[in-house]
């Protein structure tokens, strides 16, 4: 059982900084989170990837410039400018050719529950880093997009009724299960009409809806979810599951999407669910919480 972020106990947070303009955004969002959550320790981490610098590291050293020092200075400045939270925080700079394992080590060492990183694919980058991180780290991951509002009231939890997905409800509840917040469960279904051309579609939809309602009731009972969680189901029709989730999140004006790293197809820890994976590689304008 992994450590999870929760409201009851205090949290250990790690913010992965990368020296881009995303840093400021992340720090401001973290300041906001400080007001919402009880954060015991906030680690601000940056890993200097020597291999990406080629010979620059040595060249600068000859000039008497230590890369770690200038990076630290710059980050301190950025933090002073943008981080207004009151929780204790420390800046850690590591030097490792593999950023993912550097971060993973930090997560293990500092008992981190939740890692914040920028969802900056729209600027540049391939988004491979986040995919690696979610596989390696024993912590949940919160991807913050470039534009986001400092709100945490409406949370969308896509579910496939798996035990894994029940955990994302738990976390969502702990993170924002307070007065005025609103958690909505979403199940995206598709009727493989293609294979059953002679089935009466309307009847099938009605039957499916009935069945889903039934399943959700069971699901709620089994995992003891509060009764005020709204349940919605959506036919994906022509689009993909991920597309439907994102559309729903935008249409419903949600502040966060919470998914579990794994879905019903529970293979090994190395694999993450295909829907989650697709969400990771797709640029979305909402904060995405991947619960592990």
């Amino acid at each position: 059982m992994m450590k999870q972020p929760g409201k009851g106990k205090s949290l250990n947070l790690l913010i992965a900084l990368d020296l881009t303009e995303m840093d400021a955004r992340l720090l401001r969002y973290a300041s906001f989170l400080c007001t919402k959550w009880d954060i015991r320790n906030l680690v601000l981490a940056h890993n200097i990837k020597k291999s990406a610098l080629y010979s620059l590291y040595e060249e600068l050293l000859r000039e008497g410039i230590e890369v770690a020092d200038i990076v630290r200075q710059d980050l301190r400045r950025t933090i002073a400018e943008n981080f207004k939270g009151h929780c204790p925080h420390e800046l850690i700079i590591t030097t490792n050719n593999n950023t993912e394992s550097a971060l993973t080590e930090l997560v293990e060492k500092h008992n981190i529950n939740l890692v914040l990183t920028g969802n900056k694919r729209e600027i540049q980058g391939t988004g491979i880093m986040t995919q690696k991180l979610i596989r390696m780290m024993p912590a949940s991951l919160l991807l913050v997009p470039e534009e986001t509002t400092d709100l945490l009231e409406r949370i969308l939890v896509p579910t496939d009724f798996s035990p894994e997905s029940a955990r994302s409800f738990e976390v969502a509840l702990r993170l924002c299960g307070q007065e005025g917040s609103h958690i909505e469960a979403l199940h995206v279904y598709g009727i493989p009409q293609f294979f059953f051309p002679y089935v009466d579609l309307d009847a099938a939809v009605d039957k499916t809806k009935l069945h889903l309602q039934e399943r959700f009731t069971q699901f709620r009972r089994k995992y003891q979810l509060p009764a005020d969680i709204l349940f919605k189901y959506q036919d994906k029709e022509e689009t993909s599951t991920v597309e439907t989730i994102v559309q729903e999140a935008v249409a419903g004006n949600f502040d966060l999407i919470a998914v579990s790293a794994k879905g019903a197809n529970n293979l090994t820890t190395l694999f993450i669910g295909s829907t989650t994976n697709d969400l990771l590689i797709r640029p979305i304008r909402k904060p995405l919480l991947v619960v592990k």
Binding site: D18, L19, T20, I48, K49, S51, A52, L53, Y54, L56, L60, E63, I65, V67, I70, V71, Q73, D74, Q124, G125, T126
Partner: peptide
């Protein structure tokens, strides 16, 4: 991606 990182460090230097 690698290149931009290098650029950032160069700017800092």
């Amino acid at each position: 991606e690698k290149e931009t990182y290098r650029k950032h460090i160069l700017q800092l230097a």
